[in-house]
Design a binder for these strands. Structure first.
Lengths: 224, 224
DNA sequence: CGTTTACTTGAATGCTCTCAACCAGCGTGG
DNA sequence: CCACGCTGGTTGAGAGCATTCAAGTAAACG
């Protein structure tokens, strides 16, 4: 379906912006390969990452409906993307209610993730905050087949994880060490392992409901 | 348009739940009068308010598309609501692309607000955090004609504002006092005034882009 | 009036931040 | 081959913002 859309593919180098804050794009971007983030910069130069996108995600579908971007989208790693004109999306809304619903749902799931990030950053201590972030990352990577056993290659370094958890880089580091010490996390180079999924889930109070998984997907997850 | 939908009206007392976490509603709720909040409870009993809804908002339109509620919706004040069956919404998607787009947009604006709340809670100090929250509240109330001059009746007390800003109630109180001391805020009883809108906006780094206002609405706001 | 709600205040604790180094691995270029 | 710079991770110390606990005030309410 989506493949049939008119679109142009391109490659974006790690660190480059895909969509800039303040603009009004006329295309929306699908991530084919690589990881994209959405972020805001503040006056003092601090950054807040408000979303991570894995392969298969539309990373700025909302730009189809909003007047102006209130944040930027960037390639976290090198990204292969595919840009779909907003006119094509408009035609989908006109003619394909089923597909429209699917696209709408994807933006609504994004919003659900935003809400859980709020809870995570606002009301959880650093340890549970980071643990929850890692739980989500693991599940979302597993959904797209990017995990191996209980491990995965992290697309974020500790400084980037700091911007996604609203912590300082130093504190992320110390929190990682604490998770390691508790036997909940391994982190060597870019490779993260979760030796005790149940323990991590419990510490994080992680409940994947907000990811809107199917029953089948939930079952696949419970293995860890 | 929306008025033509089949729907049932009802009144919900302040503090009562409208939708409970974990359920899968078959209706979505439009707030006709009063204020609704969305919130999550954590194990230790703390609460995070992830959204505020003013009259005219759909407060759980996303439940139309998601399998299960990952949070609850409650009446902050007494609410007059109107419940629309999901089948009716499904028919809109089938037959009314224009209206579908409108509804979709409203959920996407919600997501944009979520993002700004993340930035606000995650990367702003208490003073700017609270100031930003109050700026948004003022603008949204003004849009629905619930302000008078530079003031409004707040639907949230300080404890509730704490749950919406991820602060403690005590610290909200101290921050309110600091805003007062700086001449940026008046708060007597339920009545809040903003004597220096420009100053408050500057302190909060408040940029209403994320509220997706029309040019006209933006102009109306700049008066303060 | 007694009670409740909402707001206010003080003191002590502590989590997290900032600043400043330092280290290890890695790729590049002399 | 080694020196160099860069990235990413690690560590220590000190400061400070925000929290918790506890108590007190004041208006509102039945």
């Amino acid at each position: 379906m989506i493949r049939a859309l008119p679109s142009t593919e391109r490659v974006v180098a790690a660190g480059r912006d895909i969509v800039a804050q303040g603009t009004s794009p006329h295309v929306s971007t699908l991530v084919l390969d690589g990881f994209a983030i959405r972020y805001n910069l503040l006056a003092q130069g601090t950054r807040m990452i408000s979303a991570i996108h894995v392969p298969g995600d539309f990373c700025d579908l909302h730009s189809f409906l909003l007047r102006k971007m209130d944040h930027s989208v960037a390639a976290l790693t090198e990204c292969h993307i595919c840009q779909v004109p907003h006119e094509a999306l408009a035609q989908i809304v006109e003619r394909h209610p089923g597909l429209t619903r699917l696209l709408w749902t994807s933006t609504v799931v994004d919003a659900g993730i935003h809400r859980q990030w709020m809870v995570r950053m606002g009301r959880r201590a650093a340890l549970a905050n980071l643990a929850h972030f890692i739980c989500e990352l693991f599940v979302r990577l597993k959904l797209v087949g990017m995990t191996t056993g209980n491990g995965f290659m992290t697309p974020l370094n500790q400084a980037q994880m700091a911007d996604a958890t609203a912590m300082s880089a130093v504190h992320v580091n110390r929190t990682v060490q604490e998770l390691r010490r508790r036997g909940l996390l391994g982190w060597e180079g870019r490779h993260i392992t979760l030796p005790d999924w149940e323990g991590l889930v419990e510490l994080a109070e992680f409940d994947p409901t907000y990811l809107n998984l199917t029953e089948e997907q939930v079952r696949a997850m419970s293995l860890g």
